[in-house]
Design a protein around this nucleic acid. Structure first.
Length: 503
RNA sequence: AGCGGGGUAGAGCAGUUGGCAGCUCGCCAGGCCCAUAACCUGGAGGUCGCCGGUUCGAGUCCGGCCCCCGCAACCA
């Protein structure tokens, strides 16, 4: 390659380094408020929280979004069942989800509800942009209808082509006029997007999956419902007979939470560089495997249509099973995150979900496994080591100089894993370090050493190591990390309450 | 049919670019006694789903087969 090309390459690189964003945006999907918070969502939001906290430690200004998805037929029905006004119903549920913030010690700074006034306006504006792009049109939409249930049925609700509740009745097909989104327009553009960004969707096999799906051809999807049948939605601009189908509206939260499209200065009509949208979009999304299509294909096509930049990356996690089986109410194996936190503590749950669950694959949760892990790693491991160290240091009034900046290799290891979102492996590195400290104590037996100075010489590097671990533990177990940091940063380290009592 | 994931010690799982098969729990033996009946050391236990190929060498790459799970479009 000619020399000037190389030089050009270097300049490009420098340019990008200078331009490297100082901000970082991450969002979860919005849980639908037709049920209580589920441990699967706890996994998603804890993963997102660990990433957000880690990014902050890297010096980034982070915008971390979550919220609730509140429109649609199921919620409308649920509210009716409970004899409540839909708005009142969703208000109650939104509060339940926002309670996760405290229960799971989450650091999100935005909680968007799809019934928020700003979101509604944003969704309507987004619709108009897609319409202007020529991607919205009206078409007949066929729905299967079970007279027995007096309800519309989707394919997945059917068994052998019949309603599973009324298998003896024929389903009726009814037709209504809906608005459709020209998903089919975006097949090639989506494939190009995937081609250009080899890590657009992680893990790689999920990217492969979505590529295959898109390459197989896209059908336009319905994005509205007749208001007279289902009024609980955002009104379609310019047509008061329709409301938006919940999916179309819900996805837009990722930008409406950043004040899109109200980021333009009134004075000169130019984008306000200090607006959240300008500062943070595009960003990263975390979603479950059931959301692969919606997030990495449908939403991306919608963004293209409306003329907004695509998301930067989509992380797809798996599901949590319970004893190898899907969690379901009928099996009675649904796990409630609030109960776990109340009984075992926030960091215990965070630790289990981040260390035991392989980030991209399905994981398993049982109380037995959870307690085993808790005792082995938190009580016997971290908790016991901190206690035995603090005890010795206090007993002999040994003063140490420990600093929280000497992390070196350990930090590089953890950061390497975090760049790949391998939370479990990052934690493994930290626990290997803790184990080394236990080994070291067994080998050097400081409790047998009489001389206080010599004892201090043995204990200081171990205390330093614990402090380093605690430092790096902040994104994962923020409360515990903080306790240890406070305890081990004192000149005279003192015994504290046990961090994780044995079960 | 197709697409995707998985099949590694009793259980649950790791195994980047091919190089003596690892981790946690459990089990057995020993040590220690500072600590949360904790911690440390050693040990038993595996034909890495099956067959074939490439290679000096394959859990790892290639081909074929078997079994389990998920998806299969409007399901938050």
């Amino acid at each position: 390659m000619p020399a000037h090309h190389t030089r050009y390459g270097v300049r490009i690189k420098t340019f990008y380094m200078l331009k490297e964003k100082k901000t970082f945006y991450i969002t979860t999907t919005l849980p639908y408020v037709n049920a209580k918070p589920h441990i699967g969502f706890a996994l998603e939001i804890i993963q997102a929280d660990a990433i957000a906290r880690w990014q902050r430690m890297q010096g980034k200004e982070v915008f971390f979004n979550t919220g609730t998805d509140e429109h649609g037929l199921k919620i409308y029905r649920k509210a009716q069942e409970e004899g409540k006004d839909p708005q009142k119903y969703v208000d109650e549920y939104a509060a339940k989800f926002d309670n996760l913030k405290k229960a799971l010690n989450l650091s999100y700074n935005a909680f968007i509800r799809t019934t928020d006034e700003n979101h509604i306006k944003a969704a309507q504006e987004f619709w108009k942009k897609c319409e202007q792009a020529g991607d919205i049109y009206k078409k007949n939409y066929k729905v299967k209808y079970c007279v027995g249930c007096e309800l519309e049925k989707t394919e997945s609700e059917l068994a052998n082509g019949k309603c599973s509740v009324h298998p003896n009745m024929e389903l009726e097909t009814i037709e209504e006029e809906n608005y459709f989104f020209k998903f089919s327009n975006y097949q090639q553009k989506l494939l190009d997007l995937y081609e250009k960004n080899s890590e657009f969707v992680l893990p790689s096999w999920r990217l492969k999956e979505i590529k295959n799906f898109v390459a197989g051809g896209l059908e336009d999807f319905s994005i509205s419902r007749l208001k007279e049948k289902m009024p609980w939605g955002i009104e379609v601009p310019g047509d008061d007979k329709h409301v938006m189908y919940v999916w179309f509206d819900a996805l837009i939260n990722y930008v409406s939470t950043l004040q899109w499209p109200f980021y333009v200065k009134a004075s000169d009509g130019k984008p306000d560089k200090n607006s959240n949208y300008e500062k943070f979009w595009p960003g990263m999304q975390v979603a479950g495997k059931d959301n692969l299509r919606q997030q990495s294909a449908m939403w991306q096509a919608m963004l293209m249509s409306a003329g907004l930049p695509n998301s930067t990356q989509i992380l797809i996690h798996g599901f949590i099973n319970s004893g190898g089986q899907k969690m379901s109410k009928s099996l009675g194996n649904v796990v409630d995150p609030f109960e776990l936190v109340e009984k075992y503590g926030t960091d215990a749950l965070r630790y289990y979900l981040l260390s035991e669950i392989t980030p991209f694959e399905d994981g398993d949760f049982t109380i037995e496994k959870f307690e085993k892990r808790y005792n082995a790693d938190l009580a016997n491991g971290l908790g016991n080591l901190v206690a035995r160290m603090a005890n010795m240091l206090e007993a002999d009034s040994i003063e140490l100089t420990v600093s929280s900046t000497e992390r070196g290799e350990l930090e590089r290891g953890v950061n390497g894993k975090m760049k790949e979102f391998k939370f479990n492996e990052a934690l493994k590195i930290l626990w290997d370090e803790l184990r080394k400290n236990d080994e070291e104590l067994s080998k050097k037996k400081p409790w047998k050493v009489e001389d206080a100075d010599k004892k201090g010489e043995i204990l200081e590097p171990i205390a330093q190591s614990i402090l380093s671990v605690a430092d790096l533990l902040q994104p994962f177990l923020p409360e515990t990390a903080e306790k240890i940091i406070t305890q081990f940063s004192m000149k005279q380290i003192k015994r504290g309450d046990s961090l994780f009592p044995r079960i």
